Amino acid sequence: TEYKLVVVGAGGVGKSALTIQLIQNHFVDEYDPTIEDSYRKQVVIDGETCLLDILDTAGQEEYSAMRDQYMRTGEGFLCVFAINNTKSFEDIHQYREQIKRVKDSDDVPMVLVGNKCDLAARTVESRQAQDLARSYGIPYIETSAKTRQGVEDAFYTLVREIRQH
């Protein structure tokens, strides 16, 4: 089974770092803004072998026109913010609204991801993020692309959301 996953969120929150940590098991430290990259990885989730087709997208506003296209083809979405960047957390709402509009559905598989949880300088409390996820009816997972904490959990949870859909 193949799953088309799309990673969305503001610029600099760590979308590529999360994806590369999942696929290649290493942490990319330097920031190089993405336009669009796709990665494929075969994994076993709950005993089922599946192929993850992951689209890593641009957070930069100037590429926002490309969003409709990949939102149409994606089956599930990782909505990523950084726990030390309140603005990126506030941006999640717009991504969710755009996904709902493009998919013409209120019920699209999504996982809210709070990345950079290895950093002490948190400005978005776990509780705020949990409340937001609960209001959307989606899971919330904290990750660190640096330490790998929660990385597999985030992507695998999204696959489970798609399966249950």
Rank of each mutant, 00 (worst) to 15 (best):
Y3F: 10
L5Y: 03
L5G: 01
V7K: 03
V8Q: 03
G9A: 02
A10W: 08
G11C: 13
G11P: 06
G12T: 13
V13G: 13
A17S: 03
L18H: 02
I20G: 04
I20H: 00
Q21C: 07
L22G: 10
I23A: 06
F27N: 01
F27W: 14
D29R: 06
D29Y: 06
E30D: 05
P33C: 02
P33L: 02
P33Y: 00
T34R: 00
T34C: 00
D37F: 00
R40S: 04
K41L: 10
Q42T: 08
Q42R: 08
V43E: 07
V43Y: 15
I45W: 07
I45Y: 09
D46A: 10
D46Y: 06
D46K: 09
E48W: 05
T49Y: 13
L51I: 15
L51E: 15
L52S: 03
D53N: 04
L55T: 11
D56K: 01
D56C: 00
D56T: 02
T57L: 14
Q60E: 14
E62N: 15
S64A: 07
S64C: 14
A65M: 14
A65R: 10
M66Q: 13
M66R: 13
D68K: 07
Q69H: 11
T73F: 12
T73S: 14
G74H: 09
G76R: 02
F77D: 01
F77R: 02
L78D: 01
F81W: 06
N84M: 11
N84T: 10
N84C: 12
N85W: 04
F89G: 04
D91N: 13
I92M: 09
H93V: 15
Y95S: 06
E97D: 06
Q98T: 14
Q98F: 15
R101F: 05
K103E: 04
K103H: 12
K103L: 12
D104S: 10
S105E: 07
D106R: 09
D107K: 09
P109I: 06
G114A: 10
N115K: 00
K116E: 06
C117I: 06
L119H: 15
A120D: 11
A121R: 08
A121P: 13
R122K: 10
R122C: 13
T123N: 10
T123D: 11
S126Y: 09
S126G: 08
R127E: 08
A129M: 11
Q130P: 05
D131K: 08
L132K: 06
R134H: 10
Y136A: 07
G137S: 06
P139S: 06
P139K: 06
Y140P: 01
I141T: 06
E142C: 03
T143A: 13
T143P: 04
A145E: 00
A145N: 09
T147S: 12
Q149M: 06
V151M: 13
D153S: 07
A154L: 15
Y156D: 09
L158W: 05
R160C: 10
I162S: 04
I162H: 04
Q164E: 09
Q164C: 08
H165W: 08
H165E: 12
H165R: 12
